[in-house]
Each structure stands twice: as structure tokens, then as C-alpha cells.
């Protein structure tokens, strides 16, 4: 069993295929929707955590891609300019998911992309604006 987070990008014309339903029903994947942004006629985004045996996840990826939906692991979509960070900790204030934490002995910021739920609060909370989430490409 493995659990991974993905960003799914839907083309505007895809409305008939119930992708999420099929992932659950046909592939028996446990799905947790973390973030969704869907408007008629526009590119849609869905951030999902999918839990299933690795083989099943691979089959599901093939299914998603067949329908022209882009599916990228979440960590590849989050950019954090580590080299410019002053380790102030302001971003940890808003990270209720626990992806951003301060190291007690290092006093450095630790970013665990696997815990990120793409709430985007850190984009605003960082006083140096070092975070960006690129789910619009």
C-alpha cells in the first residue's frame, strides 16, 4: 500500500468523464481531496492524496493520462527558494498541515512537501515571498 499526493490538471473540455468516481469505483483507490479549483470552461485543478497498492496506482495513472488529464506528484509543483530563506519561521505559523516546521536544534526551516495540502497560506505568510505553487501550467 502506498500513499501519494498528486496535482491533477483537467482540460476545459473534459466534463463527461467522472475521473474521481472511477478512481474510487474501478480501481478501489482511497482518495482524499485536499484542494479543488474547478470553473466551467477553464482549466481545473484537483489536489488528491491517493492510497492504493503501487501497481494499482500505476494503472490509475495510465487511466488518468488517457483522458488527457495531467497528473504530477505534488512536491514537483511547490517551489521554495531555500537559498534565500532567513529561517524566521513566519510560514510555520500558518502551516496547519505540519509541512513547514522549525528544527529545534538547527533553528532552520524544514519543508516536508509530502505533508503539504496546498492551502497556499505560506505564499502570503512568507515575508520574503519565497514560496510559489505552480499548478496553473
Amino acid at each position: 500500500m502506498s500513499s501519494k499526493r498528486f496535482v491533477l490538471t483537467f482540460p476545459p473540455e473534459l466534463t463527461s468523464e467522472p475521473i474521481t468516481y472511477n478512481l474510487i469505483k474501478q480501481y478501489d483507490i482511497m482518495i482524499n481531496i485536499l484542494n479543488a479549483e474547478i470553473s466551467p470552461g477553464e482549466i481545473g485543478h484537483l489536489v488528491l492524496e491517493m492510497s492504493a497498492p503501487t501497481k494499482v496506482l500505476r494503472q490509475a495513472m495510465d487511466y488518468i493520462k488517457q483522458h488527457n488529464v495531467d497528473c504530477v506528484p505534488l512536491e514537483k509543483k511547490i517551489h521554495y527558494q531555500h537559498d534565500k530563506c532567513i529561517h524566521c519561521g513566519s510560514c510555520t505559523a500558518v502551516c496547519f498541515a505540519g509541512a513547514l516546521t522549525m528544527g529545534h536544534t538547527t533553528n532552520e526551516l524544514h519543508f516536508n512537501a509530502e505533508k503539504c495540502v496546498v492551502c497556499e497560506l505560506c505564499l502570503k505568510a512568507c515575508p520574503l515571498k519565497l514560496f510559489s505553487i505552480d499548478i496553473s501550467e
Partner: peptide
């Protein structure tokens, strides 16, 4: 405050610094 959480009104709250201890050190 530096431990990362405090109790206020019976609720556990995450604490976060705004000033950099790393650079201060």
C-alpha cells in the same frame, strides 16, 4: 514558545517565531 506549542484557554496552539534565531546566533 520555542517548543512549538502552548496551551491557551485549554486549547493546544501552535507557536511560531517571526524573528530568526538562526541568524541571531
Amino acid at each position: 514558545l520555542f517548543s512549538g506549542e502552548m496551551i491557551l484557554n485549554g486549547k493546544k496552539i501552535r507557536t511560531a517565531p517571526l524573528s530568526s534565531i538562526k541568524v541571531a546566533k
